[in-house]
Amino acid sequence: MSHTACMARLLASAVHDMRNILAVIRESAGLAQDITRFGDGSAASRKELEISLDEVRRQVVLAAQLAEGLEFMAQNGPPRGSLSQSGATGDKSNSCDLARVCRLFCRMAARQARAAQIRLECAENTEPVWMESRPMPVLHCLLDVLDSCVSVGGKVDLHLAATQQEGATGIAVRVSGGDNEALALSALTACLRPIQGMTCARLLSTGPGTFFLVLPTGEEG
């Protein structure tokens, strides 16, 4: 799979989720309108109206997060160009915040994970985890890890956390729970081969159910 194919899959997943968000907004706003029109004005009716409007607000926040992911892809996906680093790096050229890349991956790949009944979660890093790399190869590596779990039938909980371990910067991958936990662990253990996305990336086993995705700095994939 090329970086371009990886980007296409993440974009397709995000577009599907954006349509779902729009569908929820439309029906929730429509229901609020219907309650105003058909409702009896009772306390229960007013409560239902509040719930519908809260749902609209919640979905707008989700849409904004997804839009951030789409913008990120537009600025950082292949082919390389003058804008290729700006969205991910802030003021650090040729580097990316792995914590942000992890967060955006979880949003962009949510649909693919859900389809395989994989609960994909990301650590809420309070500090950025900077790394000398472009974001696209990192996203590609994460999609390869997700694909490994999908390949055994999904149905696992997959947790990602950008971190540093023993001087190396990378992503802690934890598989816990789910019907196919053992199969997913076997598939990821087999990933001790080079990971797709970066030629020198490695997924190292660090304990029961835990791995460390080592991402070489400056790697272009």
Binding site: N20, A23, E27, D34, I35, S52, R114
Partner: peptide
């Protein structure tokens, strides 16, 4: 639909009609 947030208000709107 597996999206409860979508299917629930849609069903309610149909019932109101």
């Amino acid at each position: 639909d597996d999206e409860l947030d979508f299917i629930e208000p849609l069903a309610q709107r149909l019932r109101l009609r």
